[in-house]
Design a protein around this nucleic acid. Structure first.
Lengths: 123, 123
DNA sequence: TTGATCTCTGAATCCTGGTTCAGATGTTAG
DNA sequence: CTAACATCTGAACCAGGATTCAGAGATCAA
């Protein structure tokens, strides 16, 4: 209701229309925000984060290596990897009885890389 | 950007010895990964994500505006904002009886901006 | 074949944390 | 002062999801 002091002007509220298509605007629809939240949630678990950063550093690792890197059960690792796999974040490759995992999403890889970088600079 | 992190690396297994240096390297300690996970977790909730993206777009909004933007109770918004506030992600400013919130962490702002961008390009 | 290794799966448990509820705090108007 | 408004707080409730448990595929060696 109140007029807001926007940093960037153009805060005009479009009339909630359903016929809105993909905007290149700053505006983010609830749908988009939910998709983004879903992705962030995937990274927001200590086990999964450690797995992903281990893969980011090593490039490719088998489950046994990952189990050793992160201090949890191999079962927990397997469950975590399944989530990441079905989400398309990691990909797997079988070689004999061992299965190697790697990051498959360049987008996520950049997020991980960038976040690590900035965690170290700032604070 | 140079997001490429050599995928090949025939899994040259470093012998996992005692010498755990690698502080500025690609290596990420469990401690760092947990900190990063904690930050991602903060963004990994639909309500909080919508709040943050609303703030990213508008620059500054009061609780009543945020309550309207996100479709939840004002109480839920308040709880969500408290989490973000204590984490240093948002800052508040009082003007009369209304309180205005804004993003206070440049790091998070970039993450939000970048993620939105890439969600739209890719896929 | 048997046994050992590596990984995955579904069910059950358990716990974190998001929402709701009822009320408190602070602020402005009358 | 009281009343209305804007927001916050703590406790309780409850669901989603991470871990554990027990066992199943899959693959290789002997």
């Amino acid at each position: 209701m109140n007029v807001v002091t926007a940093l960037d002007s153009r805060t005009a509220r479009p009339p909630e229309g359903a016929g809105t298509q993909a905007r290149h605007d700053r505006q983010v629809t609830a749908e988009e925000a939910n998709r983004l939240a879903e992705m962030f949630r995937l990274l927001g678990d200590p086990t999964r984060a450690q797995l992903l950063y281990a893969l980011l550093a090593a490039g490719e690792l088998c489950v046994c290596d990952l189990t050793e890197a992160v201090q949890v059960t191999d079962t927990a690792v397997s469950h975590a990897l399944r989530l990441l796999r079905t989400a398309g974040v990691v990909a797997s490759r079988r070689e004999g009885r061992t299965i190697y995992y790697r990051l498959s999403d360049a987008h996520v890889r950049m997020l991980l890389d960038l976040s690590r970088e900035h965690l170290r600079e700032a604070r």
